[in-house]
């Protein structure tokens, strides 16, 4: 049975001598010793979350086994001392529930609390998680299409740490849910996705994917650690580079986008118009297995014609090479002429 914990700052918590930040609601039966392990997930990063709820799906090791934790942290007015308060609500999946409880469904359908005005108590009922309803793929429309989801999932499944920068207009929760749905269910807890968390906050904890809703000119998103792959979806006009390398199952795979290249003779106006539309990079894990999970061992790449546009990157390279060769030829010719004249 899953458990839940609500942690906020109150004058009197569940334990008689405990005040300040402490648990105020906890499902009966949850081992009390797990509380210190949840403490780092209670932090609300105001700079990155900007007043919105911050979500996270992580795993912890407790009693030698893996437990899953879905968290939602929100600002919660002022506490009893008059200082700014936050409320962290965790739904915890014990090891026996990891394969049946879908973290995406918890994020999508569970009624997380924004405030807690009731007195501290133990909860006797387990949290009810409804089945996931609807699609969350629409969220990718303003970021170049849902092909990015597969791309990000493939990176994380290969063991890479990924930071996904999304525009402020995109809803972080939907992005997190959509990414989770792109990961095989048995690996969703293990991979982990967090939103509005800094690199310092989460390097030591299990969460391979970090989603940051951030302004396009904000440098905060540039703070990534070595090896962390930055997928910047804030500027929709920037296409992926022509030969992008992605690690899949620890094997480097070259993504060749030259097939999308723009015809050279296009006018500059049409180029601008075209490049403002998103490029779709679709890593096709179409070979769905019988149990509904994605087979990520044999990636292939394609495009969705309705949304994709040609890239101007390859044609630029050809032009640049032509110009360089022309200049080199001119220099060599001039030098040859100079020597011939002087030798005579």
């Amino acid at each position: 049975m899953p458990y839940e914990v609500v942690n906020t700052s109150v004058a009197r918590g569940l334990t008689s001598e405990h005040s300040g930040f402490c648990d105020v609601l906890r499902t009966r039966g949850l081992p009390e010793e797990i509380t210190p392990l949840l403490a780092p997930f209670n932090f609300y990063n105001e700079k990155l979350a900007r007043g919105k709820p911050a979500y996270g799906v992580r795993s912890i090791r407790f009693g030698g086994r893996m437990w899953g934790v879905v968290s939602r942290v929100v600002l919660n007015g002022n506490d009893y001392t008059g200082r700014q308060n936050r409320l962290a609500h965790h739904v915890i999946a014990p090891p026996s529930e990891l394969e049946t409880l879908c973290p995406a469904a918890v994020l999508a359908g569970y009624a997380f609390r924004d405030t807690c005005n009731e007195s501290p108590r133990y909860l006797d009922r387990e949290p009810e998680v409804p089945e996931i309803a609807g699609s969350f793929d629409d969220v990718w429309e303003c970021m170049g299409g849902k092909g990015w989801r597969s791309h990000i999932a493939a990176l994380a499944l290969s063991g890479s740490r990924v930071v996904v920068l999304i525009p402020l207009s995109a809803e972080g929760r939907s992005v997190v849910i959509s990414i989770l749905l792109g990961i095989p269910i048995q690996r969703r807890w293990e991979v982990g996705v967090v939103e509005a968390s800094s690199a310092e906050q989460c390097w030591a904890h299990t969460a391979l994917i970090r989603v940051l809703a951030i302004d396009a000119n904000d440098a905060e998103g540039d703070r990534a650690w070595p090896g962390e792959v930055v997928v910047d979806l804030r500027r929709q006009s920037i296409p992926p580079s022509a030969n992008q390398e992605v690690l899949v199952e620890n094997e480097p795979v070259k993504l060749d986008f030259s097939a999308f290249a723009t015809p050279v003779q296009e006018s500059s106006a049409s180029k601008t118009e075209k490049s403002s539309k998103p490029i779709m990079v679709h890593i096709d894990f179409s070979s769905q297995t019988a149990d509904g999970t994605h087979d990520h061992r044999a990636p292939s790449f394609g495009e969705e014609p309705a949304q994709s546009t040609p890239s101007v990157g390859a044609s630029k390279v050809v032009w640049k090479q032509t110009i360089v060769w022309f200049i080199l030829g001119a220099v060599v010719g001039a030098l040859a002429g100079f020597f011939i004249v002087n030798l005579k």
């Binding site: 700052s9 300040g20 930040f21 210190p36 403490a39 780092p40 997930f41 209670n42 932090f43 990063n45 090791r61 506490d79 001392t81 008059g82 200082r83 700014q84 308060n85 310092e200 906050q201 030591a204 904890h205």
Partner: peptide, 23 residues
């Protein structure tokens, strides 16, 4: 602005290190 309430864990108040699997 009064200082924010000091967090119990995480945030700017703490350094974290990882020794093996222990944080």
């Amino acid at each position: 602005r009064k200082p924010l309430k000091t967090e119990v864990s995480g945030g700017d108040w703490y350094n974290q290190i990882k020794v093996g699997t222990r944080v």
